[in-house]
Design a protein around this nucleic acid. Sequence first.
DNA 1: ATTAGCACTCTTTGCTCGCAAGTGCTAATC
DNA 2: GATTAGCACTTGCGAGCAAAGAGTGCTAAT
Lengths: 356, 356
Amino acid sequence: MELSERKKAILKSVIDSYIRTGDPVGSKSLTESKQFSLSSATIRSEMNDLEAMGYLEQPHTSAGRVPTPQGYRTYVDSLMEKYFLGMEELEVLDEVMSGKLVEVGRLMDEAAKAIGQITNYATFAFMGGSGSPVERYETVYVDEYSFLLIMIRGDGTIRNRHVKLMEPITPELLVSAKEALNTTMSGLSAEQINLSVILEFEEKMGEHRAFATTVLRVVHEMLGSYDSEKVHIDGVTKLLSYPEFMNVSKFQSILSLFEQRQRFAELMQHAVPGQTSVILGDEEKSEFAPPDTGFVFHPITVGGKVVGAIGVIGPQRMDYKKVVASLDYFAAGLTEQIELPDTAQSTRKDDDHAGK
Amino acid sequence: MELSERKKAILKSVIDSYIRTGDPVGSKSLTESKQFSLSSATIRSEMNDLEAMGYLEQPHTSAGRVPTPQGYRTYVDSLMEKYFLGMEELEVLDEVMSGKLVEVGRLMDEAAKAIGQITNYATFAFMGGSGSPVERYETVYVDEYSFLLIMIRGDGTIRNRHVKLMEPITPELLVSAKEALNTTMSGLSAEQINLSVILEFEEKMGEHRAFATTVLRVVHEMLGSYDSEKVHIDGVTKLLSYPEFMNVSKFQSILSLFEQRQRFAELMQHAVPGQTSVILGDEEKSEFAPPDTGFVFHPITVGGKVVGAIGVIGPQRMDYKKVVASLDYFAAGLTEQIELPDTAQSTRKDDDHAGK
DNA sequence: ATTAGCACTCTTTGCTCGCAAGTGCTAATC
DNA sequence: GATTAGCACTTGCGAGCAAAGAGTGCTAAT
């Protein structure tokens, strides 16, 4: 069913007003805004239609109307105007992207903070594991009983791990292990490492069976494990200032979402490169966002592949135009900075704290 | 002023009861518990004394008594009984410490979860940077425009970073940089790297000034930066089930504490190795814990040095004896596992996601 | 098709009232 | 002198109720 122009205008007004104030909007307040030269009764009947079509709803009979998820959906998809970032807002974002922050981890952290500062909602930013195949392995001899195993992927991402042993090793043994790894396993994903590959590797390692087994275990773990730890979340407290989250159980559902960090990785399946997406709670397709919440995010790509995302979580009556504008601007800049390192920069690796 | 034995017993009963129920405890309920063969009037007058001495207080005239921070303090320091962990609780903890989890990061995560599961409060676990001096540097050539810089500390902890360049390098140049680093800077902390050290390093690097500068910058950053990212927090939602946090502003103060992760590092200054500490909100000495909250933690040591901590945050009326018992048990086991790796294990390094 | 008017519904707010809990004080008792 | 019983007093809390306010749907007129 098509919406008439007038219905669209009314729907837009209702949503704009509701986003601004949080109060259900009645027919009278719309006529007073003098956007429409119509009486409240007419507006009322139009709103009645919109309600029947599923765009609006009433909390109770004698209250104004409130948008439904479906209403928000058409709003974000086709009704809302473009928002132009102000000077101060641009400054905040540009500051983060100025290139001073040379560690990806911290960059993501600051990115989340900056977006949060502008929008006043909770933000998240994360980098997920890239699926790119391993190009080669490297090892570093640390001491008799430990070494560093490094995995270099085709897209330039790196993963490494500090491995401890119970049997001593020599630098030479380590080098031969590295070579064996590179000849037998480079280019393989976790699933592709089958028995024959394993046997070949173990054969090459000859007598050092225990060592070979440890190495294999670590490789397998590194290939398989999801990097769900690097989800940066900021500004959850900000949500508490919105009346919709005063309700404890509502807030609880949001919080528990944040605690299930791996769920952010699932988000990438919905990601469309270079485009900001909106997920609305209570919409059929996604059980990701809790009811009454909205979820706006923009993927980060490296070489055309989605490797992360930055986004905002807030009440469903969120200032979408502002959020979308911020994310569009920021994600574009961020992607650029990550893809084209035209200035010397380093990206940080985390510490390891195991004693020896 | 000394407390009589009877006052101590009454104080303990009041706190035990309050911790259990959360209701202010009146004189009558104590006489009914038949621990005391005294009338309520007597108890009342004793409680009145305790109030005058600052151990108890009344929310309002016609309510029972509630412990003050000072009351809790004496409780945790000298009144409470020892708690013995039950079978299921030991199982949960032992499971985590079974040695199956070979990455420090995940181990801390699971540790926090396990403690949370037993105690039903919010938990945190983190590893801070060790102050041990750098024993030597290592480098790994990744590609023409990037390499991995690795820092191996005396205590066996490792930190590394993926560095990107705008000028191409050769593996040979990288090796010479590593050697220059090791001859000029091994053993030095960030403050000790003064102009003469820098000049010596740059001299050794000869014509490759730009490269030398980049390396120096990264080294400096790695030495100085605090590793505040690895604070694992879990179970914040659990706090919402306690009436004291239903109040939005209370909860907000807790949440904002969690968002200032670097503050957990400050905690280590209060840490006493091998001992569980309790910090109470509203006590003079610490502005760390918000009012009405309690904070129990146990440091993790490596070679006698405090490198991290695991702890619990909850309402001030917390089941301290249980929490302390769990932390004591767990931290002891954890420290042991980290200090004495008598089984092959690897500790995980995080990913790096910078594209090339 | 639009509008004015009006009765109706539902929430919110303020108010009083009585109840329950627990105290402090006093006078009697061991 | 410590302990106890008794009692008046204070305070918070929930139930009940009325009035106010907001907004609707419907109807009849334009």
